[in-house]
Simulated assay, not measured.
Amino acid sequence: MRLNKTSNPAFTDYFWNDRKSSALKMTITGILFKSLLCIAIIATITVGIWKLNSLGYDIEWFLYGGIISSIIISIVISYKNNWAPFLVPVYAIAKGCFLGGISSFAHAKFPNMPYQAVGVTIITFFTILFLYQTRIIVVTQKLKSIIITAAASIFLVYIISWILSFFGIQSFIGGTSLIAIAFNIIAAIVASLTLLLDFQYIERQKNKAPKNKEWLATWGLLVSLVWLYVEILRLMKKLAIR
Rank of each mutant, 00 (worst) to 15 (best):
R2V: 12
K5I: 09
K5D: 15
K5N: 13
P9N: 08
A10I: 06
N17P: 01
K20I: 11
A23W: 00
A23V: 09
M26A: 07
T27H: 05
T27W: 02
T27A: 10
I28N: 12
I28D: 10
G30H: 02
S35F: 11
S35M: 04
L37T: 05
A40I: 00
I42H: 03
A43G: 00
A43V: 12
I45E: 14
V47M: 09
I49Q: 11
I49T: 10
W50C: 03
N53E: 14
S54E: 15
Y57T: 05
Y57K: 06
Y57P: 01
D58T: 06
I59L: 03
W61C: 07
W61G: 15
F62G: 10
L63V: 04
I68Y: 15
S69V: 10
S70A: 12
S70M: 14
I71S: 01
I71W: 08
I73A: 03
S74G: 11
V76H: 01
V76Y: 01
I77R: 05
S78R: 02
N82G: 13
W83G: 00
Y91F: 15
A94R: 00
A94M: 06
K95C: 12
K95D: 00
K95W: 15
G96A: 05
C97W: 11
F98S: 02
L99K: 00
G101L: 03
S104G: 08
F105D: 09
A106F: 00
H107M: 03
H107T: 04
H107L: 02
H107K: 02
K109V: 05
N112E: 12
P114D: 13
P114I: 08
Q116M: 11
V120E: 12
V120F: 13
I123M: 14
I123V: 15
T124M: 13
T124H: 06
F125A: 09
I128Y: 13
L129I: 08
L129C: 06
L129V: 12
F130E: 04
Y132R: 07
T134I: 09
R135F: 04
R135P: 00
I136V: 15
I137K: 09
V139N: 07
I146Y: 13
I146W: 11
I146N: 07
I146T: 10
T149K: 14
A151P: 01
A151I: 01
A151C: 03
A152E: 08
I154F: 06
F155N: 13
L156F: 12
L156R: 00
Y158Q: 12
I160N: 05
S161Q: 08
I163S: 04
L164I: 03
L164H: 02
F167G: 07
G174I: 00
T176H: 04
L178C: 01
A180D: 08
A180E: 09
F183S: 14
N184M: 08
A187R: 01
A188V: 06
S192N: 10
L193H: 08
L195E: 14
L196S: 09
F199P: 09
I202C: 14
I202F: 10
E203A: 15
K206W: 03
N207I: 00
K208C: 06
P210Q: 11
K211M: 12
K213H: 14
W215V: 03
L216E: 02
A217M: 10
A217N: 04
W219N: 15
L221D: 07
L222I: 12
L228H: 10
V230Q: 08
I232S: 06
R234D: 11
R234I: 02
K238A: 01
A240E: 13
R242Y: 06
